[in-house]
Amino acid sequence: MNLNPFRLSPQTLRRSRPWAVLLSLAAALLTWELVSRFSGLPSFILPAPEQVAVRFWRALNEDNLLLHTAVTLSEILLGLLTGTLAAVGLGYAVAKSRTFERLAAPYLVASQAIPVVAIAPLLVIWFGPGMFSKVLICALIVFFPVLVNTVVGVRAVPRALHDLMRSLRATRGQIIRLLEVPAALPVLLGGLRIGATLSVIGAVVGELVGADRGLGFLINTARGLYDTALVFVAVFTLIALALALYGLVAGLEKKFLSWQESHE
């Protein structure tokens, strides 16, 4: 994936006009078409856009594209969900308790230092080529950025608002529900936005290492057969998945954070 969405905020995307998006897409397609036509590269190196389109149609009917997509999407979503839940829970504990932070810090640092991509083969050896190992890889790769954002978000809740809640004798649960969650939500969703894209990478890496289903598996198989058009199809499907997830989080941000929008 060449798309690096980490720096793109939803505002950046919203600011780009539909006609501009269409225009730049058209330009890219045209370039691709021209290169594939006049460079003399064989189609197993660079297939033309229309070949990929035809292959897409065939993949739907003959190669179970939808099934592979569904498998990869489930891995991504399950991994994202478990990784986020674990990270938010642990992040909250780290943010609230210095003792817990000191105890957990070595492991947290280690979890960031271990390149998940590098231990993916190990995880596949241990947990088999099924879905579980991919979900685990996704969860691990999502874990750290969401954890960091949770800690930052919870720690940034103004002390004065804590004082207010305490002067009103709010319970622990009320403080979490009515103060800490809404106050930390902007930063938390920022972490989820990063996590969503990382989760796609995690699932594909896991599938490339060893799987019998999924878009990563499809890429591996197609590559072996020099069916480069099918590789393109799988890659584009992954891009669509990543964009959809990104849009989903951006939508959540829009729904829950409208109070933040600045007046311009």
Partner: peptide, 10 residues
Amino acid sequence: FQQANLMPWR
């Protein structure tokens, strides 16, 4: 309080 101390999301 000295500052109004309102919750900005409300």
